[in-house]
Structure formats: C-alpha cells, structure tokens
Design a protein around this nucleic acid. Structure first.
Lengths: 406, 406
DNA sequence: CGTATTTTGTTCAGGCTCGGCACAAAGCCA
DNA sequence: TGGCTTTGTGCCGAGCCTGAACAAAATACG
C-alpha cells in the first residue's frame, strides 16, 4: 500500500472549496507543519486531483519567497450530475471545485415515467463521458421532490408527474449500471440522489453565496410550492429520514386561503409563483413553467401597480415565513432562490425589515439575506454528493477497492 | 509528557453515557483492537475517572471468559451544577455518568438581582464541595432564558425578574472565581452557562429518554411559555448565536388570541400552563408557580369535564406545534417536559394522532414521543457542559495546563 | 549593489499511536 | 479432562506526524 496520509481528505476539501490557494495557507488551515502540507499536496497531485503551479506567484506587496498556487486539476476526474425539473432534464459533467465541464439539456414529454426520463438523462451523461473521455468517479441526481431516506424514494414528485413514492435512487443507480458508467475499480460508480433545493444549498455552501457559513438556511421556490434546506458545519442536514426543511406549511397569513394540508395561509400557497401571478391578477398560461412566468412578470412589469402590490404582499408573507425559520434555526446566513430571489432583488430592504421585525431578538433577525449566485446549482450539488466519498478518503475512492480506515 | 491516547475521549464518553459496560464492548464501539481498548481503559483508570472491576462478571448464559465491568469511578471528580428557576435556585455536585452526588436547594425573594442569586447558588455549591472534599473540574449554570452567544447574555429572564440582557455567564464565572472553586491546575474552573431546556435536552440525550437518538427534539413548558431544544449527533444545536429553537411563536391556532409578538394563536400563549388554567376556567393563584398549579390540576381533577376539555384542547394545539417542528426538523425522537409531559401522559394517543395527522408524510409523523425521565435534568445538563472539555480531551483537562492537540 | 530579512518549500530523523499477532486467562460444554 | 469460545495483555512493526536543519526565492535596506 502506498503511504496515504489521513490529512489527505481535509486538504482536498480545502482546495475543492477554494480555501487553500497555496501550500502555505493549506499548512495554516490544516494546522499541520509545512512538511506535512507539502507531502499531502504532492500526494494529491500524483493522484491527479490537484495541480501545483510550476511557476511561483508573488502576492502583491508581500515579502518573502512567493508561493506556488494550488488548484483543482482541470483535466481531473469528473462526476456525472443529472437533474430533472418541470421543463425537462439536464445532464452535466462536473469536476472538483464545482466547475461544469460539459452539459447537455433535454426536453421531456410531460407524462413521462421515471424510468424513461432517467434512462434519457443518464444516457446523455454517458454520451458526454464518451465524448470528453473523462474519468468518472460518481453520479448524483437532483429531483424536485422530497427524498425519503434511507430508501431514496421520491415522495411528491408532482412537477414531473411521477408516481408518489417512486424509488428514484434505485432506478437511477440501475440506469447508471446499465449505461456502463464505470469507476476506477472497473465497477459501476455509486449513484446518489437528493432533493434539488437541498443540493442547491450544498452547492451554494461550497462554491457560492454560502461559502464560510456554519448555519446556512436556503429557501427557494420551484415551479410550485416552497422548499428549504439547511447546511450545518458543511454537511447537509436532511433530518432523520430525509424529510427536514419541509417549510411550505408554516403559517404566514392566519386569514389566508385554506391549504391542502388542512391549515390555512401556508407559505406554500401564499408565496409561490402561482400565488404571485394570482395576486397580480394574471392568469397562468400553460406554455412555460409558472416560475418562469412569475419571474418574467416581476422583472418586466414592476412598474405596474398591481405587480408592485403583489410583490410587496409576497415579500411580507415570505418574510414572515423566514422569521419563523429564523426563530427555530437561528442561521447565520439565508440564501434565496427561484422567485424568492427575484422578490429579494425587487425590494431587499422591505424583506430584511420584515424578517428583523418578526424575529424574536433583533440580533438573530439581522441575519444576512442573499441571492443564489451559481448557475445550475442543483446540478453542482448533485455532483457534490458524488464527490463526498472522494473528499472523505481520496485514496480509497481512487483505488476503488483497497481501503484504509482512518 | 505521559503517553496519551487519542481514543481516550471517545472511550470516556462511551462509559459516561453507559454504552461501554465492559472492555469488550468498548473495543467494538471504538472500532479498535482489544489491545488498544485495554490500554485506554487502564489509562482512564489511572486518571481516576473510571473503575475496572477486579472480579469478572459473567453475562447470563454466555460462553467464554467473563468480562470485567467498566464504570465511572463513584469517588471521581465532580462538576458544580447550578440552576435558577421561578421558585428559587439549586446547586448540586454531579459526577460523570450523570450521577448527582450532592444537592442543595435554596429559596429566593422574587425581585432578586442576578449577582445576589448567583452568589448564593455558587456559595451553596462551594459549601457542598467543602463538605464532600471532592475534586471539581468545571461549573455549569442553567437559566430560564435564551442565552445569546458568544457573550452569554440572558435575553429574556422574565421568570426570575432579571434585567433583559444580563451578562449571566460573566457574572457566574466571576462568582465561581470569587468563591475559590479551583480546578486541577490550581486556577478557577471554567464556568459555562446555558438555557435550561437546552440543558435538559442534553441531559436526556446522554442519560435519559434520548439515549441513542441522533436527531432529538425536546419541547417543554416552564413557568410561562414554551421552549425547545435540539440535539444533533450528540451535540446541542443552539444556532449561530444561541437563539435556535425559540419555538413559542409557531402559529397553532389561526383564530387564536393575539400574541405579544404581533401574530396570533402562537404556541407560547396557546399551550403553556397559564393557557391551560384559563382553558379550564380556573384562576391562577399567586402562591406557587403556574406550572405546579397546572400540573396539579391536570393530575388531580382530570375527571372534571372542564379540565378534560382543556386538556384535549391543549393537546391539539401542542400537536400542531410539534407537527410544524417535525416538518422542519424531522427528528427521530421527541421528548416532552413540564406541562407537556403531563399532557402526553393524560392522552398519549390523541397527541400522537394529531402529530401524525398534521405532519406532511406519515412516516415522519410516526416519530416516537416520550416523556422526560430524569430528575433535575437541567442540572445534569449544566454539568454536561462542564464535562465536555473532559470528554474531548481527558488528559488535557486533568493536567490543567499541559495540552496536546489531536 | 550586496547583504539581511522574510516567507516558502524540502529532507531527514525521531516519536507517538495503533494494528496485527501470539499467547495467556477464565469460563462453558462434552 | 480436554476442547471451544470469549476476554485480556505483551510485543513488534508500520504509518503518520512533528521538529529541526537546510535550501530557495523574493523584498527591504544601507
């Protein structure tokens, strides 16, 4: 067995998340000696995961010997990332560092059963792998539904018209096997599956607006309804059976309309794209997704008094929901996606004021509220699932079979 | 430096929480060899923390060589635990394993400022230390208020009539210094402070009804209002600034009475002891705490139709609140304290049915709901805070100054 | 312009901890 | 009494890391 270092995983994670640009910072962040950091970096380079600049780079106005930059190897291995959403699907190859290497969108006829859709998206991914000739170390899938653990069943994949309880992880894994997507050991790569908003939050935490946060709350709308996610200490918190952060049924309007959950005035029916269109007095057309329609309306017709009033109303409802979550979770940062991101952009002060006003203690209400920054963050997050074993034990993941226990 | 083993902390934690009754199980739980487990146990014994039975104990009907039992040394060091509540205060010495070695209650004239109360309770604890001659390794304080991190300020210590924002951790630490409570290094022991329900949850997780849970939710009433706590992977989750699980303002009755928070029908005013007395048509007397009055009424007059009706109503409200928390946190167990514990005892099926019915997915609604089992669990939890450094690094904590970094 | 200083990176020796193995101990079972 | 099974201990070697000495590459300064 080659000599493997137990600090290998943490070191790779630091480079992966862009927190270790040089060996000197790596030394500090890992809390080890320069000697160790040097060996670790060399090891990661021989594994083909990172690259050490051959030419030194001097920091501006800094004394001392200039350092060599560390970066994820742009020609390194990739993860196969897949996403299914209301308008179709998308496959991509994502490298370490969250860089999308190749991508392929696809359309979908609406009553499409999960096996067909996942076959198509995995096939698109496999085609990308063939075209680029990249090594693949894992596969991840993002679905617009709560995913029950540990089985990986999609409980409410309504936007994609799948049957409730569809065993998506199993289907996805089966399609990956079938498509012959092999890892270094010559066996099919492991296939992971998660909720799209959860994965978006994970991606934003590692590579986007959530970098450095310890208690990150992410709230977003998709096509219909409202979803949430929580990243604690760098790990997704999805609860004991994957069903945490189902935030859609917080009461945000005691006099609001009845919800299918039995209560009334739930966030799900008071702050989603359909609620916005209704509040603005528009009819929803069938051609594109409700999210697209709502976002377009908000961006192009904000001058219209009805649109402006609807925006204010939804901001107030959303703010109430966020304040409720702040009282329960006390995050250090909030990231908004989908229509909520547009609402934030339209009137950030109003949203922040509502949250601060309705949180119990001013201090926790002063939490920063930011928009998502990554494109296709659910795809990047799906890749993060696949990268996790590599980050936990680079040697084991690349050797494929010969393992070591920390 | 003596030879210190990095597995020392995990091993002590296993014995502390009663999950390692013998060296054989310790071996399995730590995932090390018998050789290592043996050395670790010997080391912990020479440190005076645990005791290894000299006589072997045969498990009933088991083959093979009988094992020697491991147990926390009953004469080992203690932590000074202190609690302040609506009716007075209490000091105690708590050993590893959550065993209360000595305790001393105290009364309090109601408008008592924090310095006086904490001086009294620390003095009572110091007296216990003098009487018993125990070594003390740390001090912990439980207060009926949210405690803001990192300063340790009590934000709403209403039940004890303290000023909002009182720097209780600082005051407590100062009193501990003043009382001359010294640790092994000859310096004053570290003083920790936390919210009482948080600490109760921590204690129940380590020694009570929460043992073995990975996502533990605890909800309880004190004198007034409703509090919550969350223990994730064995660590208290109190949010980025200590203000998580302020669950009192979940809406549980859209037609309910207005709350001081600006909303209406909040859990805080719909499911606390005063709400129960009011719903049962009783007037609150001033002599004892509202919790006591409500619990007595529920236990002694459950035959009274008004009391029974009030019980049902509060169970429904509480169930709605718990369902909301289940949708957000997806815990694997719920523990109830205070009046909520009595409500659960009165009609467990009704409460479980409401939670299951109003959680989004039947499976997460099927979470077990259990009553608290420990006496004075906030005190035991306060001691847990003080034990944490010892569990993290037994050698460092006992040496007092000579440290090692894992 | 040459030397001192600062920071980065490498090589080597030594030490600490743990795993693996052999062996011993202490009870059931036949 | 002689296996069998489980528990506990002693010893050696492997792996990983620290510390120190050395080397390299830039800036600072007289």
């Amino acid at each position: 067995m080659e000599r493997g270092r137990s600090a290998l995983g943490p070191a790779l994670e630091l480079v992966h998340t862009g927190r270790a640009p040089t060996r000197a910072v790596l030394t500090a962040e890992l809390g080890v000696t320069r000697a160790t950091a040097g060996v670790v970096a060399a090891e990661l380079e021989t594994l083909g995961l990172i690259r050490v600049d051959s030419r030194p780079t001097a920091a501006a106005g800094a004394q001392g010997r200039p350092s060599h930059r560390l970066a994820i190897d742009p020609d390194g291995p990739v993860a196969l990332a897949a996403q299914v959403h209301a308008d179709g699907f998308r496959a991509a190859l994502v490298g370490l560092g969250g860089r999308t290497v190749a991508t392929a969108p696809g359309a979908m006829s609406v009553p499409a059963d999960p096996v067909h859709v996942l076959t198509a998206v995995v096939e698109a991914g496999a085609e990308l792998l063939r075209r680029t000739g990249r090594r693949c170390l894992g596969a991840g899938l993002a679905v617009p539904s709560a995913v029950a653990e540990p089985e990986g069943a999609a409980l409410n994949p309504l936007h994609v018209a799948w049957p409730a309880g569809a065993p998506v992880r199993e289907i996805f894994a089966e399609r990956v096997r079938e498509a012959g997507v092999l890892g270094p050991a010559g066996t099919p790569v492991t296939a992971f599956t998660g909720n799209d908003i959860n994965l978006a939050a994970l991606a934003e935490h590692r590579h986007g607006a959530g970098r450095g946060s310890r208690d990150l709350l992410c709230v977003a709308t998709g096509h219909r309804g409202v979803g949430g996610a929580l990243v604690l200490d760098g790990r997704l918190h999805s609860g004991s059976s994957g069903l945490a952060l189902e935030v859609g049924h917080l009461t945000v309007n005691p006099e609001g309309r009845p919800c299918y959950c039995g209560s009334r005035g739930c966030l799900d029916v008071e702050a989603d794209p359909l609620a916005f269109l209704t509040a603005a007095g528009r009819d929803a057309g069938p051609e594109v997704s409700l999210l697209r329609q709502a976002a377009d309306l908000l961006r192009t017709e904000y001058g219209d008094p009805a649109v402006r009033a609807a925006t204010g109303q939804l901001i107030d409802r959303l703010g109430l929901g966020l304040a409720g979550l702040v009282n329960i979770l006390n995050p250090d940062r909030i990231i908004l996606g989908g229509l909520h991101r547009e609402l934030l952009a339209a009137d950030p002060d109003r949203l922040r004021a509502v949250v601060a006003d309705r949180s119990l203690w001013g201090r926790s209400g002063g939490v920063p509220i930011l928009p998502c920054t990554l494109d296709h963050n659910s795809l990047v997050g799906a890749a993060e699932l696949a990268w996790q074993p590599v980050l936990d034990d680079p040697l084991g993941a690349l050797a494929g079979q010969r393992e070591k226990r920390a």
